[in-house]
């Protein structure tokens, strides 16, 4: 499904260069749900951005379903990639209405015409889709998205990302800025949507227990390298403490940052 071969990415070539990705090799099978962990600055977001085509890698190649998409810009890759960002403000257009945002997401896979964006038929469909969220958004189709709370916006973004059945769903700490209860709800919604459409997912999280319980495979990044890659069924026997141990072992040193430790508790 998604294959990354020998990816390198360095920012600020020259004096303050940061090596964000170092020889990344990853083979994602259809319907894989991979959770990605690692400390701040490990390169998790960079990995997703390179997968989405925000910027090309310096070296290496990316294949989706066998097609080389390494140099394909973000907007041309969007038809098969759905994305939810860490910042709830990033995934939606605040001045536009809920239904308009959904309509824009629906155009992702089929392209844009001079047909009216939000028709009565679409509106009915959106109402149904939104009612699945159980947030009452189906009654607020013509409200600007800017009026919604962070959790509501993130749920909407998730719904938008799943429209048109993307081949690949990229989630970058999409619950990090939500309160714990809302975060749980959005994660549950994530599971529901992924199962319903059988999506292939890369999900970045700082919560180690989520990383182990969600999906079927976990990878750990450190300083731009994949230092752990574990699938079910072996993963099922792994505990959060094992994970911390594996981390220390792989690095040969204890440089777990506070955030990683805190998230483990």
């Amino acid at each position: 499904m998604l294959r990354m071969v020998g990816l390198y990415k360095t920012f600020n070539l020259g004096i303050n260069s940061v090596c964000a990705l170092k020889n990344i090799n990853l083979h994602v099978k259809p319907q894989d749900f991979i959770t990605i962990i690692g400390s701040n600055g490990a390169g998790k977001s960079t990995l997703l951005s390179v997968a989405a085509g925000v910027y090309p890698p310096d070296e290496g190649a990316i294949y989706i379903d066998g097609t080389d998409v390494t140099r394909l810009p973000e907007h041309l890759r969007a038809s098969f990639v759905g994305r939810v960002f860490q910042d709830p403000l990033q995934g939606t257009a605040a001045s536009m209405t809920i239904e308009e945002n959904l309509a824009m997401a629906e155009c992702r896979s089929k392209g844009r015409t001079l047909g009216i964006g939000v028709t009565r038929k679409k509106r009915e469909r959106y109402r149904e889709l939104l009612s699945l969220l159980g947030l009452g958004l189906e009654e607020r189709l013509s409200d600007p998205v800017g009026l919604l709370s962070g959790g509501q916006r993130q749920s909407l973004t998730l719904l938008m990302a799943s429209l048109g059945q993307p081949k690949l769903l990229l989630l970058d700490e999409h619950t990090a800025s939500l309160d714990p209860r809302t975060a749980e709800q959005v994660l549950e919604l994530t599971q529901t949507i992924v199962r319903k459409h059988g999506l292939t997912v890369l999900m970045v999280t700082h919560n180690l227990s989520h990383a182990l319980t969600m999906g079927n495979r976990t990878i750990m990044l450190d300083k731009g390298e994949i230092i752990l890659d574990i699938c079910e069924p072996e993963r099922g026997e792994l505990t959060v403490d094992d994970l911390l141990g594996r981390f220390a072992q792989a690095r040969g040193e204890r440089l777990l940052d506070d955030r990683l430790l805190l998230a483990a508790r």
Binding site: H75, A94, L114
Partner: peptide, 28 residues
């Protein structure tokens, strides 16, 4: 009319949140 077409929505989103509409497949 134009700003309510599918293309028009993309134009409005480009002014509102270019990163978002690029990830929705629009060449901003």
């Amino acid at each position: 009319w134009f700003l309510h077409t599918e293309l028009g929505l993309a134009v409005r989103a480009t002014g509102d949140n270019p990163q978002m509409i690029r990830s929705q497949g629009v060449d901003t």
